[in-house]
């Protein structure tokens, strides 16, 4: 497995410009919702941007639900698995997750490492992503099989890899985020930066900001570890609700795609109306400029 040699994975991913791994040591800090936000924002950043989102959280996949794609099957073509497109006919936002492969959505995936490794290899080598500007990879919590496998299989395309660490501000989460940063250093994964999520919550009644999970921890961790800090996101119930019930949102949308093409698909339109989308703007600009810096190197 030499770094230069061509592998099925490197062949498959040869037309993908940037691969961004979203990780965090701790669970429930918003990796998946940040992944979706990164994907949607990159998608909207240019009318031709092609984005893929790969969910390697095998035992707890959340991406399909968040994109409103629950229950979609994956089709097999002669050229590999066809990803599920969240934007319908436009086919610029591709998604792949183990959830698409389950017979029933309540089925548990009780797999030990070797099977998870095989699944991840298949996701990387058998999905027909085609040409993509960005492939966002959402990972499970921790620093174990999935993460080691990802980095191993992606080693032939290491020059196009980068990572984003998501954390919440409380000490318990920061500890795990620091472990995640140690992991990225061990495997020499360059970090685009840290995002502090769930930092503060504005009461919908009186507007008072409560720091439910404290605040500022992510920024100070980034400073201590000399990692770029990408920004802070508050708890946004609108976003939680939108991503939790994205499918219902999509169902209301019975206008043919052609009619609404200029506005993007419904989830994106709804997302753009949230306050998080506005806050995410500078974060994505930051990500874009760092990514273009990577290419220049």
């Amino acid at each position: 497995m030499s770094a230069q040699g061509e592998t099925p994975v490197s062949r498959r991913l040869s037309k993908i410009k940037h691969i961004v791994i979203i990780c965090s040591g701790k669970g429930g800090v918003g990796k998946s919702s940040v992944s979706v936000q990164v994907a949607l924002s990159l998608y909207a950043s240019s009318p031709n941007a092609r984005v893929g989102i790969l969910d390697v959280d095998l035992t707890g996949p959340s991406i399909p639900r968040m994109l409103g794609l629950d229950g979609h099957p994956v089709h097999q073509s002669t050229d590999g698995w066809v990803p599920v497109y969240a934007d319908g006919g436009e086919a610029r936002l591709a998604c792949m997750s183990v959830a698409f492969l389950l017979k029933r959505k309540d089925d548990s995936v009780i797999w030990r490492g070797p099977k998870k490794n095989a699944m991840i290899r298949q996701f990387l080598s058998d999905v027909r992503w085609g040409e993509l500007d960005y492939l966002i990879i959402d990972t499970p919590p921790g620093t174990s099989d999935e993460h080691i496998s990802l980095i191993e299989h992606l080693s032939p395309v290491h020059s196009r890899l980068s990572g984003i660490v998501v954390t919440t501000p409380q000490a318990v989460a920061l500890l795990d985020a620091m472990k995640c940063v140690s992991f990225t250093r061990t495997v020499s994964l360059p970090l685009l930066g840290v995002i502090e999520n769930m930092s503060g919550y504005a009461c919908p009644c009186c507007g008072e900001i409560s720091n439910v999970f404290s605040t500022g921890g992510g920024e100070s961790m980034a400073k201590r570890g000399s990692i770029p800090f990408l920004g802070t996101l508050p708890i946004d119930t609108e976003l939680v609700t939108l991503l939790d019930a994205a499918a219902e949102t999509e169902q209301e949308d019975d206008k043919p795609i052609e009619d609404v093409e200029h506005e993007g698909f419904r989830l994106l339109r709804r997302y753009k109306a949230t306050s998080s989308a506005k806050l995410f703007g500078p974060i994505v600009e930051n990500i874009l400029s760092r990514l273009s810096g990577f290419t220049a190197q």
Binding site: Y201, C203, C205, E208, I235, T241, D244
Partner: peptide, 18 residues
């Protein structure tokens, strides 16, 4: 449910959509 320390109103941060 989250009770705002300011106005004591309870709101749902993680809304039970189902």
């Amino acid at each position: 449910g989250f009770v705002c320390p300011g106005c004591k109103t309870e709101s749902q941060i993680f809304k039970p959509s189902t």
